[in-house]
Amino acid sequence: MQILSPRHVKTDEALRLGVESGWYAIKVSGTFVSGPHDSEGECRRKIDEIHPPPAKKKR
């Protein structure tokens, strides 16, 4: 399973990378998986949609 995290790409970096500025879900390697998203919350929701958190085990 991949670990994804939210990352904000500002305008100057976005121009350098050739992408739009905004929030992106990225792999540990730095590869963009999803985005741009308007907010960190929206990005985190997408990350949870791609890789839902593990279900809690019942005892």
Rank of each mutant, 00 (worst) to 15 (best):
M1I: 09
Q2I: 15
Q2E: 15
Q2S: 11
I3C: 07
I3R: 13
I3W: 14
I3P: 06
S5D: 09
S5H: 05
P6F: 00
R7Q: 05
H8W: 03
V9L: 03
V9Q: 01
T11W: 08
T11F: 13
D12T: 03
D12K: 02
A14L: 02
R16E: 11
L17G: 03
G18C: 14
V19C: 12
E20L: 15
E20P: 14
E20I: 14
S21M: 07
G22N: 10
W23P: 01
Y24I: 08
Y24C: 05
I26Y: 00
K27W: 11
K27S: 06
K27V: 05
V28A: 08
V28T: 14
S29E: 06
S29W: 01
S29V: 02
S29L: 03
G30A: 04
G30P: 10
G30I: 11
F32P: 00
V33R: 09
V33I: 14
V33K: 09
V33G: 03
S34K: 04
S34Q: 04
S34V: 05
G35H: 06
G35C: 11
P36H: 02
H37M: 08
D38Q: 12
D38E: 13
S39D: 12
S39C: 10
E40V: 01
E40G: 06
G41R: 15
E42P: 09
E42S: 10
E42W: 07
C43T: 05
C43Q: 01
R44C: 02
R45A: 12
R45H: 12
D48T: 02
D48P: 05
D48G: 07
E49L: 09
I50S: 07
I50N: 08
H51L: 07
H51S: 06
P53V: 11
P54W: 15
A55T: 12
A55N: 15
A55R: 15
A55W: 11
K56E: 13
K57C: 13
K57T: 08
K58I: 06
K58N: 13
K58Y: 03
R59Q: 12
R59C: 09
R59E: 13
